[in-house]
Design a protein around this nucleic acid. Structure first.
Length: 789
DNA sequence: TGATGCTGCGTTTTT
DNA sequence: CGCAGCATCA
């Protein structure tokens, strides 16, 4: 450890006579314990020592967490400010606050340490910023800023940004930070992989730049905290003494940095309670370590493990399907979900000819549900990849079926919001170079590259912020008259706003800044379709500022939260990815796209092998367990990927469902199973042990058709084997990339295609054919999908 | 500075 | 195919 650091004491905890602690203690027989089952109750009441709560889907995880906090408070074991409770998302933190408040009959203002890892990380870091080379008002960079900064670093190092993109470096650095690695600890080999061995230097340079800018990226909020604790024992001791209890939500999603951070803090009281579900770990690709949860008992000696397996959400059939599927995973702690619910409806599996029919089919089922009085709000379509959403949107628009897409481009990611925030950041802290750079020429003021370059040179030479450099520069002859005037005007404006900050309420200030800067006008003049929406967003932003005490508080919130407020409450079907569905529940859940290559996703398999497959399977498990009453799985035999039709094989996950709880349904959308007829053999590698009556019927029918067909047209044997051996998505990709490959087909030839029927080849481009089909019109297809007729 | 065309890429997302 | 990001030209 370093020399002892003088540490300011943490703020005294004010005794609050009417506060929640006192109030909670006053309640004699804790009503909150009533209604918990035995395991839940044990999880709430086991207060001393490390505890891992393995909470399966729908087993009351959040309830346990909040009740536990209420319990600690009501027993007087700790005061609100002595409990550290961390979540991943702001939404989860908000919900927890609300629930505790409801439980104890008041809002929980007294829980300053309930928040996301990052929010709590910033809070700690700001108090001790100078110990890690920052000032307490450091800015938090978003991904955009980070990339821009890295571009500058790359440029300064004379590295060709096309060969070594800033994005790639950013993801490497993020990865290192996720693993708790400060630049000096990054394995040399890994760092060397970037830009011919210069990765480590660039990482260090980036870190230096951050310090000069008085800024921290998201990773730093934790990593610098870890460094702080490691290098300043007194600071760490202070927090260890403060936190009597630590609670962690979604522990399966923690990365190494978060784990280290937690371990440092939790070592004080040892009363650390982590709640999670290894079967719902779906964020491995962004650094989450399932290992953290699998290793818990080793890492925290004397730990107790409590399993919550009693599910209060889904019917027995749904639970059985999900449970059986997940047993195919090897690396798991093992839980068995059970319920007293009715068996309910079986999980259905429906095959569709193509993705259009899949959408049509689902649309019809939804309309049928609607006619039976089901709320659209209780229906969700969960897809693996967002491109799948479009098909549903198109279909629902034609049907006039209300829907909402969850998790589209986020409010804060929109350009106009980022621009507006950049203006406000400049007003609040004139030294925020990245913000200044973003808006210096937005709207256009004639301040182009040349001006910016001059500013940069001046700033770097003198080690001063850009805005200050600008002030100096407008007094010289260095700039051309036009940019000089423009820049002077802008600086004068910032001066005005900076002064006005003292006098005006901050939402009003924001309005003035946006108007006077010409930013609002820029969008008013813009006649593109989305300009109106953008102006609306800006208004929304200003409105949302009212909730905060001052500009500083607002910007702080925004840097961390950047949450759009909930949309309208209209009755609508929800369409979202499986990832964003985690934590939600619906009566009816549609799961389309269960095809090899899409789900499990080819890329997950290619890049992460067996671990990737298991994560995909957990994703399937998450999808099924979102449903209370109905799960409807679909797959399509043909799907358009990158503009070309590819045929596909049903997902192996279908074979991993327990047949007793699954029913194979007929597609209601039109052709139904017809699509499989001529290529049913593609399914064999996966269909071997899938035997339900409906399935068997369908397969027999296909076999019959198959036999009929092969005797007739005589499919070339070789191409058939190809189909079977190589998943077509892969083949499609390979084929698409092999530029030299010349097709065996020629213009004018007559061919047969599974989806489109007969047609004449119009043109040949490598192995891509343009075919004029008799019925379907002109389409582009890969040659391996047609045969000569 | 702004418009236009070309190239490359195409899973999941929070803070 | 459709989009985003970049490069080039007017």
């Amino acid at each position: 450890m370093n020399e002892p650091t003088k540490v300011d004491p943490l703020p005294e905890i004010q005794p609050a006579p009417g506060g929640i602690a006192a109030r909670a203690r006053a309640a004699a027989a804790p009503p909150y314990l009533a209604g918990l089952n035995a395991e839940q109750r044990a999880a709430v009441e086991t207060l001393d020592g490390p505890l891992l709560v393995l909470a399966g889907a729908g087993t009351g995880k959040t309830r346990v967490l909040t009740t536990r906090i209420a319990h600690i408070l009501s027993l007087g074991r700790a005061r609100p400010a002595e409990i550290l409770a961390v979540t991943f998302t702001n939404k989860a933190a908000r919900e927890m606050k609300e629930r505790i408040g409801r439980m104890l009959g008041q809002t929980v203002e007294g829980m300053p340490w309930l928040g996301t890892f990052h929010a709590i990380g910033v809070k700690i870091l700001r108090r001790h910023a100078e110990l890690v080379g920052l000032k307490s008002d450091f800015t938090i960079l978003d991904v955009d800023d980070q990339i821009r900064l890295l571009k500058q670093v790359l440029e300064a190092a004379n590295i060709d940004e096309k060969r070594w993109p800033a994005r790639l470096l950013a993801s490497l650095i993020d990865g290192w930070k996720n693993r708790g690695l400060t630049p000096d600890r990054v394995p040399a080999g890994e760092a060397a992989s970037f830009a011919d061995g210069r990765g480590a230097k660039l990482n260090a340079a980036y870190q230096d730049r951050l310090k000069v800018l008085n800024a921290a990226d998201f990773g730093d909020l934790l990593l610098e905290g870890i460094r702080l604790f490691r290098e300043h024992a007194a600071v760490l001791a202070q927090y260890q003494a403060r936190f009597k209890y630590t609670l962690v939500d979604e522990y399966q999603d923690t990365n190494v940095a978060q784990y280290l951070w937690l371990r440092l803090l939790g070592q004080g009281s040892k009363n650390i309670c982590c709640v999670g579900d290894d079967d719902q770990s779906i964020y491995g690709w962004r650094g989450a370590e399932v290992d953290n949860i699998l290793r818990f008992e080793k890492d925290f000696p004397g730990a107790r493990v409590i399993r919550l397996e009693r599910n209060y959400r889904s019917t027995a059939h749904i639970l059985a399907a999900a449970s059986h599927l997940i047993t195919h995973n090897e690396g798991r702690l093992g839980k068995t979900l059970r319920t007293d619910e009715d068996p309910g409806e079986k999980v259905t599996v429906t095959g569709a000819w193509d993705s259009e029919e899949e959408a049509r089919s689902i649309g019809e089922e939804i309309e049928a549900l609607q006619r039976d009085g089901h709320k659209l709000n209780e229906i969700a379509i969960l897809v693996r990849a967002s491109f799948q959403m479009r098909e549903f949107e198109d279909r629902f628009v034609t049907l006039g079926l209300p829907y909402r897409v969850i998790g589209g481009p986020r409010f804060y990611e929109r350009a106009e919001i980022r621009d507006a925030l950049a203006y406000l950041r400049c007003v609040a802290s004139p030294a925020d170079d990245l913000a200044f750079e973003r808006i210096v020429n937005v709207p256009k003021r004639g301040l182009g590259d040349a001006t910016l370059q001059a500013l940069h040179d001046h700033a770097r030479a003198r080690r001063i912020p850009l805005m200050e450099a600008a002030r100096a520069l407008v007094e010289t002859e260095e700039l051309k008259p036009k940019p000089r005037t423009a820049l002077r005007d802008l600086l004068a404006a910032f001066n005005r706003w900076h002064v006005a900050r003292e006098a005006l309420p901050h939402p009003e200030l924001a309005e003035i800044v946006l108007d006077e800067s010409g930013y609002t006008e820029m969008w008013q003049k813009n006649r593109s379709a989305d300009a109106a929406g953008r102006l609306e967003n800006l208004k929304e932003l200003v409105r949302s500022m009212e909730e905060f005490e001052n500009l500083q508080g607002f910007l702080e919130h925004v840097a961390l939260v950047m949450d759009a407020d909930g949309g309208p409450n209209a009755d609508a079907v929800s369409i979202m990815t499986l990832h964003s569905a985690k934590g939600l529940e619906f009566d009816t859940v549609f799961l389309p796209g269960w095809e090899e290559g899409l789900f499990p996703h080819q890329r997950a398999l290619d890049e992460s092998g067996h671990a990737g497959l298991e994560e995909e399977r957990r994703l399937a498990h998450v999808g099924i367990t979102r449903a209370r009453r109905r799960v409807k799985i679909f797959f399509a035999s043909n799907r358009r990927i990158h503009g070309m039709w590819q045929s596909s094989v049903p997902s192996r996950f279908l074979d991993e469902l327990p047949e007793a709880h699954v029913e194979v349904a007929e597609s209601k959308g039109g052709f139904g199973w017809g699509g499989f007829t001529s290529r049913f053999d593609m399914m064999e590698p996966f269909a071997s042990d899938y035997e339900t009556p409906g399935w068997r019927r369908a397969r027999d029918r296909m076999r019959a058709e198959e036999a009929r067909e092969t005797t007739g047209a005589g499919t070339p044997r070789g191409s058939r084997r190809q189909f079977r051996r190589e998943p077509l998505t892969i083949e499609g990709e390979l084929v698409a990339k092999s530029t030299g490959a010349v097709s065996a087909y020629a213009t004018g030839e007559r061919v047969f295609h599974l989806k489109f029927g007969y047609g004449d080849i119009v043109s040949v481009d490598g192995n891509k054919l343009t075919v004029a089909f008799d019925k379907a019109g002109e389409k582009r297809v890969v040659d391996s999908y047609v045969e000569r007729s």
